[in-house]
Write a protein that binds this DNA or RNA. Structure first.
Lengths: 224, 224
DNA sequence: GGTATAACTTGATCTGCGTCAAGTTGGCGG
DNA sequence: CCGCCAACTTGACGCAGATCAAGTTATACC
């Protein structure tokens, strides 16, 4: 059962997906898996980074905080996402904190084992390069948006993207407003106000705590 | 001479540095090198990304712009830095623009050749992973700083870092104020004012257009 | 070495959004 | 089904920093 969990986890992850069955079984043996409940930490800023974390089920958020104590949400991990690439280069400390948003299961591989894997499995190294490449592109886009776009723009854009990712115009926000605020680099109050004004403008409809219906995607796209 | 340039270029680059002489000579044969003058583009957003760019001499800036037309400076490339990792994964378009800041020479390798290199040289793949890992960490830090720190903080921090990187308290800014403003996510006017106020507070001394002397590093570090 | 021009400075004004504070609501545990 | 509490909303206010405008240097080029 445990073993089975581990193999599931390995099969789920894009960076392992193109590998042979034999490779996957071998990797599964190196994997340790654990279950966390919402609010638990996968790892925290400043601690030794010596394992790679792979999410099997559930969601987690990755944050970073400044001396001033404010926190920025960098990305949300879903099933198949991984983090902890501090492991990949010079052994060092985590520069971010990962917190479970839901009950979740996560698989980990030690730095040592993962580096050995990379050496023996060239295809894996390419897969990881691809994944990191995408991370860089996504982060660059986020940095740019943060710096040059207004909160309205960022929020409107987020709604359109999320609707697109989910595939329909009516959906539940995957994040609490507080987390969404951290993600967009603003405050819950401002999120509230902007959503209210979008609704007043007939661009969206809100109901319940988290439910949003996008009525006018084009209108949202041209929010200043 | 041309060949010599190429080999220089390959030797300069950290991702190639741990490789054997034989490998380096082989790689140098795949490299194409060119010279650009300040203001020229290495590549532009939206064009096909099919080469890896490695800076041999000079400096370049990497920027990204939004629909609204505003531009964000993501990073400055110096000798040995590389970019264009769009090449590394699914063939796609550049999501950023790179512009020469000075006269510079750059070496490029085609996607095809680079992927072949990666397959045949496992050590190279690891080096590239390390470099990308560092890029991710740096970008995460930049995103966080952008979102939660004031302009004063970001500017003060930039001055301290730059002084540290150069190794002395008195140095020339490597960037025009306009570019520095784009990098820090603000405007040239604000940079001017903040520098003036740092000088008034006795934290720095300015002379000429670009010259800065850091007088009180600790004082800068605790700018709000 | 003078002068044209981009780079920068300084000032005045305006505004988005953060902050603090005081409600209000939804949903879950008992 | 009720009451409690975190999550959210709404309002009032202030300020960092953007913007617009009008000088004031530097530096590069003839």
């Amino acid at each position: 059962m445990h073993q089975h969990e581990a193999e599931d986890c390995v099969r789920l992850v894009p960076i392992f997906q193109t590998l042979s069955d034999a490779d996957i079984t071998a990797i599964a043996k190196l994997v340790r898996d654990q279950t966390l409940k919402a609010g638990d930490f996968l790892f925290t800023e400043g601690t030794l980074a010596d394992r790679l974390y792979i999410l099997a089920h559930g969601q987690a958020k990755v944050t970073q905080s400044t001396a001033a104590g404010r926190e920025q949400l960098l990305r949300v991990l879903g099933p198949g996402d991984f983090d902890g690439e501090g492991v990949l280069f010079t052994k060092g400390e985590h520069t971010t904190t990962a917190t479970a948003l839901t009950k979740l299961s996560v698989c980990t591989i030690s730095q040592h084992d993962f580096q050995a894997l990379l050496k023996n499995t060239p295809a894996l190294a390419l897969n990881v390069l691809n994944a990191l490449g995408r991370r860089v592109v996504a982060l660059e886009a986020k940095t740019t948006a943060q710096a040059v776009a207004s909160v309205s723009e960022r929020l409107a854009n987020y709604l359109v993207e999320t609707a697109g990712a989910i595939g329909k115009a009516s959906f539940d926000l995957p994040l609490k407003k507080k987390d969404l605020a951290q993600y967009l680099g603003t405050t819950p109050e401002t999120i509230s106000r902007k959503l209210a004004s979008f609704e007043a403008a007939g661009l969206i409809r809100q109901s319940g705590r988290q439910h949003i219906e996008v009525l006018d995607e084009d209108g949202l796209a041209l929010q200043d």
